[in-house]
Simulated assay, not measured.
Amino acid sequence: MWRFAGRLSLVLGLLVVSTAVVAAPASAAQGVTVRISEVTGRFEAGATPAQMTVVATKRTRECIKVRWSLVLRVEDMSLDQITVDRREEDGSFPVEFQDNGAEGRLTDERLDPGTLCRNRTVTARYTIAFDDDASGGRVTLRAEAFDARNEFLESDTATRNVQGDESPSPSPTPAQEETVEPTEEAEAPIAGGGIGEPTTPAAGTGGSGLLPVGLAVGGMMVFLGLTLLLRARSKLLRGQPAGRPGIRGTWQSNAARTIRERR
């Protein structure tokens, strides 16, 4: 009975120690907060590089050194179209780059110059630029903080859409369209005409409509002349009084009178 209790106590003690060792880094990381405080500029092909600022703070008293690492994940575009520069006050900060296809990682070659303590911050700055011919897509930026023993502390993530170089070709202006259309109409008969092919005159051109018009005018003139002649003849007929002899009747009456006188 006592031997069993002793063995059980030993096993429990080992479990407690191992749990404390595993939980130690996690409990140390609880005092650190990482936040992407600012992302400015345009995520656009050929635009001025965008700016990103990451800030780490600490709630506990002990001070630590920080190593920064930035993870980039892209969608619908390539990592080769992006240029990232880790910046400090005195210029570019050396980093080690790892390319994993759709994901890349930039890790500081040395610890950040600042020291992270309570009520103090450590800041990392990055510039992000896109090539002139970069395609549109999406980029995710995850900033991670590690301590001097390369143990993970905390991270923060930001995602942005990238506007690519997809400018459509300019459409012709109305002035250009008006200039092109007459040229095409003028060249159409030349393109259609060939050896032995008759040329069809365009509708409405000079000479094609004069013959029908002349015939119509002539017909109207003939009709008007006939009408005037008929009216003149009818007036002459109506103008003679009833019983008035004509030329023949006058000659006959004179002849009869002469005969009577002779008798």
Rank of each mutant, 00 (worst) to 15 (best):
T115G: 08
D112H: 06
N100P: 00
C117T: 04
T127V: 08
A129P: 00
E96L: 13
N100D: 10
G114S: 13
P94Q: 04
Q98P: 02
C117F: 14
A124L: 02
E109Y: 15
R110Q: 08
E103R: 05
D99Y: 09
T123P: 00
F97N: 04
Y126Q: 04
G101S: 03
V95E: 01
A102R: 07
A124F: 05
D108W: 13
N100H: 13
P113W: 14
G114E: 13
A129I: 05
I128C: 03
D112S: 09
L111Y: 11
T123I: 14
L111P: 00
S92F: 09
R118A: 04
Q98F: 14
R125A: 05
P113D: 05
I128H: 02
D108C: 00
C117R: 07
E103I: 05
E103D: 01
R105M: 09
Y126N: 04
V122F: 15
L106E: 13
E96W: 15
V95Q: 01
Q98H: 15
T107C: 01
D99V: 08
R105N: 11
P113N: 05
C117P: 05
G101C: 08
D108Q: 13
T121M: 15
R125D: 13
Y126P: 00
G114I: 09
D99I: 11
A102G: 04
L111A: 04
R118G: 07
D99F: 08
A129G: 03
V95K: 03
I128D: 02
A129L: 11
F93D: 02
R110H: 13
T115C: 11
R105F: 04
F97M: 02
R120V: 10
C117G: 00
D99C: 05
L111D: 08
G104I: 15
L106Y: 15
T127L: 12
T127H: 06
R118K: 14
T123H: 07
G101M: 08
G104D: 07
R110V: 09
R110W: 10
D112M: 01
G114W: 15
L111H: 01
C117Y: 06
C117D: 06
I128W: 09
L116M: 09
N100L: 12
R118F: 11
G104M: 04
E103M: 12
Y126A: 02
L106N: 07
G104N: 11
A124C: 09
E96S: 07
C117E: 03
T127E: 06
P94I: 01
V122C: 04
A124Q: 03
R125F: 00
P94T: 03
R110A: 05
N119I: 14
L111E: 09
R105D: 02
R120Y: 15
L106K: 03
A102L: 02
D99E: 06
S92V: 04
N119L: 12
F93W: 10
T121K: 13
L111I: 06
R110L: 08
N100Y: 09
E109H: 12
E96R: 15
T107K: 12
Q98K: 13
I128T: 01
E103A: 14
A124T: 03
A124M: 02
D112P: 00
E96M: 10
D108F: 12
T107S: 04
F97S: 10
T115Q: 10
P113R: 05
N119P: 00
T121G: 00
L106I: 08
L106D: 09
R125V: 06
R118W: 15
Y126V: 04
T123L: 11
